[in-house]
Amino acid sequence: MTNLSLGAADVYDVLLEREDIELTESGCTSNCEICECHLFAIVNGELIKAEDAETLLQNVENELKENSVLF
């Protein structure tokens, strides 16, 4: 919740609109040092962090592209 209140909610709202990914909200993730200083998301088990919402969204999208499988 702290992460969302610090600006990650904007990223969450954008990603919520996408039908090709599944979002899961979590309580405390025990990443206190990161949570205090950065916005972050966990994508496929990888911690993605950024200084601001725009950068976090870009980093999340990059991680999703790197891990996508094309058929």
Rank of each mutant, 00 (worst) to 15 (best):
M1Q: 12
T2G: 12
N3W: 08
N3R: 06
L4R: 14
S5P: 07
S5F: 15
L6T: 14
A8D: 10
A9W: 09
D10A: 15
V11W: 08
V11H: 10
V11Q: 11
D13F: 08
D13S: 13
L15K: 09
L16I: 08
E17A: 15
R18V: 03
R18S: 07
R18Y: 05
E19V: 05
D20V: 01
D20K: 01
D20C: 00
D20R: 01
D20T: 01
D20G: 00
I21D: 01
I21G: 00
I21N: 02
I21R: 01
E22S: 15
E22Q: 14
E22L: 14
L23N: 12
L23Y: 10
L23C: 13
T24R: 07
T24Y: 04
S26G: 07
S26V: 14
S26W: 04
C28G: 00
C28P: 00
S30R: 14
S30C: 08
N31H: 14
N31S: 09
N31M: 11
C32W: 05
C32Y: 05
C32V: 03
E33S: 07
E33R: 05
I34P: 00
C35W: 03
E36Q: 03
E36P: 00
C37F: 12
C37I: 11
C37G: 04
C37D: 10
H38D: 14
H38L: 09
L39C: 06
L39M: 05
F40C: 03
F40T: 03
A41V: 00
A41R: 00
V43Y: 03
G45N: 09
E46L: 10
L47N: 13
L47M: 15
L47D: 09
I48S: 12
K49L: 12
A50W: 08
A50S: 11
E51R: 07
E51G: 09
E51M: 06
D52R: 00
D52L: 00
D52A: 02
A53N: 04
E54R: 03
E54L: 03
T55Y: 06
T55I: 08
T55G: 07
L56C: 04
L56Y: 04
L56M: 04
L57R: 01
L57M: 01
Q58G: 04
N59L: 06
N59F: 07
N59Q: 13
E61G: 05
N62T: 14
N62Y: 07
E63C: 15
E63H: 09
K65T: 09
K65V: 10
K65C: 07
K65P: 01
E66S: 12
E66L: 10
E66M: 11
E66I: 05
N67Q: 13
N67D: 11
S68Q: 02
S68G: 00
S68A: 01
V69N: 06
V69S: 07
V69R: 04
V69C: 04
L70Y: 10
L70R: 10
L70W: 08
F71Y: 12
F71N: 11
F71C: 08
F71I: 10
F71A: 13
